[in-house]
């Protein structure tokens, strides 16, 4: 009931929570992914985020991105959120590849275990960020270390008790209860960097695909497989043109060079879109294009 009060939006947006210690790169990621900021060398001196902010993104699924500043104490973050973690479809935890892991990992465990406790359908994603700060050879090794650390820590935790939200009486009286080993919590890892926007776009594609998965991903993939077959295309991506990430692709493996080129192409088309926009000619054009087949006889509005 409390939830309804928070989002009496026109429709329900899938909510994604960006988490991470201070300066881990959350705001920068948001800027590059959704605000078309070009990361140059002397990139965004993002002001220290001090307030939580929410951002509506109209991608193929309506999203709302919540960006909360890191606090030393995770309970402070919960307080600032003001809603339970079960509000979110996805948690993205941003961890700086050079950061002191123990603190970040402790932070991560707090949120991931609590979120999972409340909702076993939640998608838990980790962005191992600022990959550019490590030489290529060490990058993957570093990322693997972080992953192992997280798994180790999870294994050391006591079994967690699930509050099953799908139970009929989800009031405080008698929630149906099961327990799970923390090491079984599914977590997906991505290596990211704002200086390599393709890497970031690919990571966010995968986040979106997991969000779509139960509902329509299998159908989309089948559709694209069929398209590939009948058009002799070697690879097909279905892009969300707003966010410039793909939301589905055919079954063949994704080769990052091809993906990068497609991203750049979509970016270019998007940028061209407004470049030669005419203040006098533009408005009717789109309408006519759509309307023409419907009323072929009655043109010129």
């Amino acid at each position: 009931k409390q939830l309804d009060a928070v989002d009496d939006d026109e429709f329900n947006r899938s909510k994604i929570l960006l988490l991470g210690l201070r300066r881990s790169g959350k705001t920068s990621i948001r800027h590059v992914l959704f605000e078309n900021v070009k990361p140059s060398k002397n990139f965004i001196e993002t002001d220290m985020t001090t307030k939580m902010s929410k951002h509506k993104i109209d991608s193929i699924i309506p999203l709302e991105i919540w960006d909360v500043p890191g606090h030393a104490n995770p309970e402070k973050v919960m307080e600032e959120l003001g809603v339970p973690l079960s509000t979110f479809s996805t948690l993205i935890f941003v961890i700086d590849i050079c950061d002191n892991y123990p603190k970040a990992i402790e932070y991560l465990l707090y949120f991931f275990t609590n979120a999972y406790k409340e909702n076993q359908e939640i998608n838990l994603e980790v962005f191992i960020h600022k990959a550019d700060a490590r030489a290529e050879d060490y990058r993957n090794e570093n990322a693997r270390n972080i992953q192992l650390r997280i798994f180790d820590e999870l294994a050391d935790l006591p079994p967690i008790t699930l509050n099953n939200p799908s139970a009929p009486n989800s009031g405080a009286s008698t929630p149906s209860v099961t327990t799970i080993e923390p090491s079984q919590i599914p977590i997906v890892f991505h290596l990211t960097s704002v200086l390599d926007h393709h890497l970031l776009q690919e990571a966010f594609s995968r986040v979106l695909m997991r969000l779509l998965a139960p509902a329509c991903l299998p159908f989309l993939e089948e559709l694209l497989n069929a398209f590939c077959g009948s058009s002799h295309a070697s690879k097909v991506f279905l892009f969300d043109t707003r966010t410039k990430v793909y939301v589905a692709t055919d079954g063949s493996p994704v080769d990052s060079a091809t993906h990068n080129l497609c991203c750049d192409y979509v970016h270019m088309l998007n940028s061209f879109g407004s470049l030669y926009k005419s203040s006098s000619a533009s408005s009717n054009r789109q309408e006519r294009r759509i309307r023409a087949p419907l009323h072929p006889a009655t043109s010129t509005p």
Binding site: D264, Y265, F272, L275, S278, S279, S280
Partner: peptide
């Protein structure tokens, strides 16, 4: 000019195409 196109369009076109 009735269209009033963006005054920075030329250089932005160059930049976009070069990048692509």
């Amino acid at each position: 000019d009735p269209h009033q196109l963006d005054p920075t369009r030329y250089e932005r076109t160059s930049e976009l195409i070069k990048a692509f």
